[in-house]
Design a protein around this nucleic acid. Sequence first.
DNA 1: TAGCCTCGGTTCGTTCACCGAACTGAGAGG
DNA 2: CCTCTCAGTTCGGTGAACGAACCGAGGCTA
Lengths: 175, 175
Amino acid sequence: MALGKNYEGQNCSLARALELVGERWTLLVVRDAFYGVRRYGDFLAHLDIPRAVLADRLATLVEAGILQRHRYQNSPPRDEYLLTDRGIELWSVIYPLMRWGERHFATGEPLRTFRHAACGTEIDPASRCPACGHVDVPPGDVESHTGPGIPAQPRQDPVSVALRQHPHRLLQPLF
Amino acid sequence: MALGKNYEGQNCSLARALELVGERWTLLVVRDAFYGVRRYGDFLAHLDIPRAVLADRLATLVEAGILQRHRYQNSPPRDEYLLTDRGIELWSVIYPLMRWGERHFATGEPLRTFRHAACGTEIDPASRCPACGHVDVPPGDVESHTGPGIPAQPRQDPVSVALRQHPHRLLQPLF
DNA sequence: TAGCCTCGGTTCGTTCACCGAACTGAGAGG
DNA sequence: CCTCTCAGTTCGGTGAACGAACCGAGGCTA
């Protein structure tokens, strides 16, 4: 979606945003980055995405300044992908979309809930904390909890297991 | 994206939402619906979308309960596509994404601003009205205004012309 | 009644992105 | 030297998007 035949006729900021973030898989990669996924292999295992597509999406996101690549060890050389501030701002899109999908297309109870780390209250679809009145709770103050709708046979990849294990603060590394 | 090879492994509400709303063009169709576009031909002219793709997207959105089809005249029989409540709730995704794109990838000034109809103040990226303190301004209370960044050679299709002509309340028909 | 127009699609051949399986290469570690 | 892991790249096959042409229902005009 990004190159070649894009939305160039639409001189609208929504169209420009969608050129970057509207491609298949892209928003799920960004969601995983909020969950603390940072390495190629972990995105791969958690998303069941073709390897070539993942490599392409990561490169596009880095180029767009949504992720940044960071060398976290030298031997062997390994990089991790971290959300930039620009990427972190996408929480205000991802979270409402998640809640919208949950309200209208959920099959049973939610699999995951998001709570205000400071007070433990579930955050509303507009990112407000009903308890402490905090509006626009930033993702760094959000804790992901396993929800009541967790399936009988949950996924066994390391990322899914770690996410189930215990409440986890967004943006913090999973491992 | 919707059928066949979908995100079925991802039992996450974001993935389910993206199966519907994450396909190419879909969110732009919904945006146009907020602008008051209602007829096949108007979507077509404003979006420069292949006819077959538009027909497919409209059918998918109707099936998902995001748009509803409404017969507005009988001879000749003509239908219009209107946002349902479920569709209207997508404003909380579309508006933040638009503002995010504008902040980070805009070329100059915004083409369009969104004001609180009650007080005329521009609505912030989290859908709050800074003037009257209204949080979560619903799209029906939002007026679209032509912004300062309007290009020298703007589009000449009827929808673009009507949108430029005068401030326009979201969800109200354009014509 | 014939001819033409509009609207809302469908059809069809080409192009392009996605898919998944196999392969590659750098760098441990034994 | 052999094997393993990690992070990709390569490649043949398939499905979706593209755009131009076609179609049919139902006016309008004469």
